[in-house]
Design a binder for these strands. Structure first.
Lengths: 148, 148
DNA sequence: CTAAAATAGTTGCAGGTTCAACAAAATTAA
DNA sequence: TTAATTTTGTTGAACCTGCAACTATTTTAG
């Protein structure tokens, strides 16, 4: 593997900085409007998109940026807040599902406009349609490349 | 401000996922090789690049993804580990500089090859030169757009 | 069938981060 | 000059996360 080029390093640095800024801003907006933070959003949306709005915890771990113990704790909190419930698995008695509740869905819907505005404003707005397509393409390639 | 398009949302999702994966992997590599983690690296490189290899804590906060209290704690740790020292400011007696030590520079140099390999392998490798240039361009635009 | 190995999820513990309140010093305004 | 305001950095408390060890269950090998 060769050395990192100047151009690659420049791309990396802007990538990192842009990411940090955007996340920071979206997170701040969500907090100001008393909406669920991004990690929670990720869990809720994953459940929302899943069949029966439920997912094994193991599946959930793959969809969010958390270790399994981290997920256990997050699910604990969300269950306490009533956004989801744990449901013991029939087939595999070691396991459990997280199931989205109505309240969870409400909070998901309420957070979305804020989140969406952030994506638009902080991420998409300054880019042309073409640039957006290129970013999507490149990031998808990179993601796949790193997906075992 | 209009609605987020499908294309923008797709770009956003790959962007987020790619970022998470890459950071995860680089961080793991650094830990396995007993090198300093990324946040520490960011502080050390900022100092290394600064005149006299020192920076006011306030300046440092701007260069890393940390609040000022977070930075205070990180600087505490790095000082304990001998990677930098605090130096009281003469001009402004409220403030302090963080000054890179030799050990700090050594650790910085030792971490770089691992970090660089990660950037190359997890980020740059699957992208063409052209794609890299486009990513750099887009991310720079986005960053500037969010830089007040 | 049984013993060993793998898998799902939880827990104690420690580390790292933020928020809000604070102290000290510098700046501004009256 | 003095009092109010702002700025710099630190601190206590709470929160969030990961690691490693653990329990319970399922799967695999012999």
């Amino acid at each position: 593997m060769e050395r990192v080029t100047e151009s690659e390093l420049a791309a990396w640095r802007s990538f990192i900085k842009a990411h940090a800024r955007i996340i920071e801003r979206i997170e701040r907006d969500l907090a100001e409007q008393k909406k669920v933070p991004l990690t929670t959003y990720d869990v809720l949306i994953a459940l929302f998109e899943a069949p029966d709005r439920k997912l094994r915890l193991g599946e959930l771990t793959k969809k969010v940026v958390l270790t399994k113990s981290g997920l256990t704790r997050l699910v604990d909190r969300l269950e306490r807040e009533g956004l989801l419930v744990r449901e013991k698995s029939e087939e595999d008695r070691r396991g459990a599902y997280a199931v989205l509740t109505n309240l969870g869905e409400v909070q998901l819907r309420q957070a979305w406009p804020i989140y969406a505005r952030g994506i638009k404003q902080y991420f998409a707005a300054p880019l042309s349609e073409d640039a957006i397509r290129q970013v999507e393409e490149s990031m998808a390639v990179v993601y796949k490349h790193n997906n075992e």
